Amino acid sequence: MGRVTVREKVLRIRGGTVGSRVDTLVVEEPLEIRLNGRALTVTMRTPGHDFDLAAGFLVSEGVITSAADIAAIRYCAGATEDGSNTYNVLDVSLSPGVAVPDMTLERNFYTTSSCGLCGKASLEAVATTASWSVAEDPVRFGVATLAEMPDRLRDAQRVFDRTGGLHAAGLFTPEGEMLAVREDVGRHNAVDKLVGWAVREDRLPLREHALMVSGRASFELAQKALMAGLPVLAAVSAPSSLAVDLAADSGLTLVGFLRGTSMNVYAGRHRITLEKASTTPMAAPG
């Protein structure tokens, strides 16, 4: 398997002090995903949990909804001079009867680590029809539970501790239990890896769970949550206007700027249980 981190010598300047040291960097490498032997997409990712990444990507694209839709996932031989495997190319074989998407239209299947939707031909093409509706999901998350989620996610980021350069996505229950976490240099890859883990464990749809992400809540992350049947998306940073619009239209609960007991609820506030603080009651989010 590929390396997750590398060590590099750097020149370190701190005020008037100059020196050298060895720094740990997160690895970013391309992963080509093939579908039934045909090239589908190339994404820049951190090696690790690649099968989850491929499966989650296919969920996000509306190709699969369960583990039964996948016949096999395997690495393909890399194009190295010595014939060794680079572990940067994998092929997903769909089960008989699962429709293969048209891979010639609508999308340039190259994505970077910062944007999983840059190749979409138009905003309308992004509006993939979800297999499950989250609007009627009855789950509730208390403010105290939400407040603990960022620290629990951060504590589980093993590679981030060494590099400081990774996004994370975690899956939480209403009781605050973190069921799984995935890291990647790309925030959309981290979510795909998490959703891929869930689909391969036959857990979709992820009703009555929350997705917690370490960065901002973009439109693409809101869409990925909906495609996995997740009713709650929480982020430590800001949402985009399109993410808020999508959440409001679909019934997704969207929480941003989640930092301790401070947070903004942009949509789906009916799922947030407001608890009284020790001295003064907490006001409903504006």
Rank of each mutant, 00 (worst) to 15 (best):
G164H: 01
L274E: 14
L11Q: 02
S240D: 04
V185Y: 04
W197F: 09
A168N: 09
A267L: 06
A210G: 07
P285M: 13
R154E: 00
T104Q: 04
T46L: 11
R45Y: 10
D69Y: 07
P101G: 05
E81A: 15
A190P: 04
E8R: 04
G215P: 10
R34S: 13
D137K: 14
A180V: 10
I73M: 13
M282E: 13
G286N: 15
T129D: 15
M282D: 13
A71C: 03
V10Y: 00
N85G: 04
F51H: 08
A217V: 02
P285D: 05
L246P: 02
G165L: 05
L254F: 15
Y110V: 07
E201L: 13
H49I: 00
T253E: 12
I70Y: 07
R200H: 08
D23K: 15
G2C: 01
L274W: 11
A225Q: 06
M282H: 11
D91T: 05
A144I: 08
N189M: 06
M212I: 01
Q157R: 03
E208A: 12
L166A: 04
L206M: 03
L211Y: 04
V191H: 12
V89W: 06
T80C: 03
A130P: 04
A283V: 11
L90A: 03
L194C: 13
H209I: 00
N85M: 06
R158G: 04
G164V: 00
A79V: 05
S262V: 08
E148K: 10
I13S: 01
